[in-house]
């Protein structure tokens, strides 16, 4: 197992490099004078000169890439001009908030998506199945940012159950209960679409598995139907559910952008949008590379989970 993890980590290196190349190329495509474009409204002569020196913008493209990459590997993502602090500090701080939000949403969509899908399959064509299928259709069609706004209207304004926005109460907040209270609505709004997608997939994966011979064997053994569904069938269905969880994690992570805007959550997504509007290119660059790299690592964890579940995968 240890060997397998190392192997997967090594295979991630080219992907990570690829990500940096892509981000670098996108940024290199910026029309006009790169230094001015990167600095945007912060393009004072000193800044322009500084960034030309930092990034070696007078050098050829390839050299610039390696300088940039080398800097990043030493933890130097450059300096945000709009915030006047190192990019990496800002990203790390914001990423924590995003992780709380996206992580909670991911847990919600995994648990409820799978449960809904399993129930739906076990009661195929029954009332529960129809209700879930309908709810899923609504769920995957509603834009998360609109849903978030409607939730604010319904549960923060009409009924004051939850706070309108933010991560902590401004006065007297700051503990875990306060965080949880602020987290409920944004996490749900972020999770809804992914829950629907996972429920849908789990349903069809379960239907596929429930027709297999080993399910008949389990029933022939006298295993209780509850256990047949939730242990035998679900275990086998997880083999096709887990990769989708990996993909959905990506959607949740990047979909957090919208939710962070709607609920004014101090996460990396809101930081990125502000940075784009301020034309703070270095902050965008650093944020994107960092989040994408984290996602690649997360997907390795998904692969490892898959190999733990399925002994047929050669580790």
């Amino acid at each position: 197992m240890g060997g397998y993890i190392v192997k997967r980590l090594l295979s991630a290196i080219p992907v990570l490099l690829g990500i940096t190349v892509i981000v670098f190329l996108i940024m290199a495509l910026i029309p006009g004078d790169p230094a001015t474009a990167i600095l945007g409204s912060y393009a004072t002569p000193e800044n322009v000169e500084k960034i030309n020196r930092d990034l070696g913008l007078d050098k050829p493209l390839v050299a610039r890439y390696f300088i940039w990459l080398g800097n990043m590997l030493t933890g130097d993502f450059g300096r945000s001009f709009s915030l006047n602090r190192p990019v990496i500090d800002e990203v790390l701080e914001r990423f924590g908030a995003t992780l709380v939000l996206a992580g909670t949403a991911f847990i919600i969509c995994t648990i409820f998506g799978i449960i809904a899908g399993v129930i739906s399959a076990a009661r195929q064509y029954g009332l529960a199945d129809k209700a879930i299928t309908f709810a899923v259709l609504i769920g995957i069609s509603i834009p998360s940012f609109f849903l978030g706004m409607m939730m604010i209207l319904a549960f923060a304004v009409e009924r004051r159950w939850f706070p309108v926005s933010g991560m902590y109460a401004i006065y007297g907040g700051g503990d875990l209960a306060d965080l949880a209270w602020h987290l409920v609505m944004p996490a749900i709004a972020l999770a809804v679409v992914a829950t629907g997608v996972i429920a849908r997939l789990s349903r069809s994966a379960m239907l596929e598995v429930l027709r297999q011979d080993y399910i008949r064997t389990a029933r022939a053994k006298g295993v209780h139907e509850r256990r047949v569904i939730w242990t035998h069938a679900l275990k086998a269905a997880m083999v096709s559910i887990i990769p989708v969880l990996g993909i959905q994690a990506g959607f949740v992570l990047s979909g957090a952008v919208y939710i962070e805007i709607v609920f004014q959550w101090p996460g990396v997504g809101r930081m990125l949008v502000n940075a784009i509007l301020q034309r703070d290119i270095l902050l965008v660059q650093g944020g994107v590379v960092f989040v994408a790299a984290c996602y690649v690592l997360f997907n390795i964890a998904v692969d490892v989970a898959q190999s733990l579940l399925d002994p047929r995968i050669k580790t």
């Binding site: 981000v23 990047s254 784009i276 965008v284 994107v288 996602y295």
Partner: peptide, 8 residues
């Protein structure tokens, strides 16, 4: 992650 690339 999909939207992130679009943002970049």
């Amino acid at each position: 992650p999909y939207i992130l690339l679009a943002l970049a």
